[in-house]
């Protein structure tokens, strides 16, 4: 009961923030709304008892990605807010499409009976995650390091100020 109320409040908060992100005209405000959305999703993860993911969500999305976005906004900002209109000409089609997509998904999801279990989350979940990184999922684990390396090199190449 309490959990359901908390869930509904968090859901309203998260969706409101997400709407603010896509609607707000000022880019910095959009970024702050995005931070709010990420925080709401992190609380949802806590409700799902995925505490490691909840803190990772805050660390990576709020601490890193949102900061990166704000920095990029500041770097390219002089053109930003003066451009006419936040949305393009097909925005109404996009809105209609999104609403339709949501209606279809919601209908579908409420019809499908998912086989759920009420098993509890084991205490050593984080240790299991860690041993799977270097066990079953060692290839994706190493590929992620390569991906991050490539992303870092590529982004430095792109963003660096060239002198002379």
């Amino acid at each position: 009961m309490v959990q359901q109320v908390v869930f509904i409040l968090i859901a309203i908060f998260t969706l409101g923030m997400a709407l603010g992100t896509v609607i707000s005209r000022k880019l910095f405000h959009a970024a702050l709304f995005l931070v709010g959305t990420f925080a709401g999703v992190a609380i949802l993860y806590v409700l799902l008892e995925a505490e490691f993911l909840a803190v990772s969500q805050v660390i990576v999305y709020i601490g890193a990605i949102a900061t990166l976005i704000v920095f990029a906004i500041m770097l390219s900002r002089s053109m930003m807010d003066k451009e006419s209109g936040a949305v393009n000409k097909q925005w109404w089609a996009a809105a209609g499409g999104s609403v339709l997509l949501f209606a279809a998904l919601a209908l579908l999801l409420s019809k499908v009976p998912f086989a759920t279990t009420s098993a509890a989350v084991p205490d050593d979940t984080i240790a299991k995650i860690g041993s799977q990184f270097v066990g079953v999922y060692v290839i994706p684990f190493e590929v992620v390091s390569v991906l991050l390396l490539v992303a870092m090199i590529g982004a430095i190449m792109l963003a660096r100020e060239r002198h002379g």
């Binding site: 959009a30 409700l47 393009n88 998904l105």
Partner: peptide, 30 residues
């Protein structure tokens, strides 16, 4: 306490909002 469907519908709603943002905004950052 919370049915699985609630989470899935919430995720669907979040996905659709993001979808709208991608399709409708003019600026690359949003």
């Amino acid at each position: 306490a919370i049915p699985l469907t609630w989470y899935l519908i919430l995720a669907a709603a979040l996905f659709c909002i993001g979808f709208y943002g991608v399709l409708a905004r003019r600026n690359a950052v949003p």
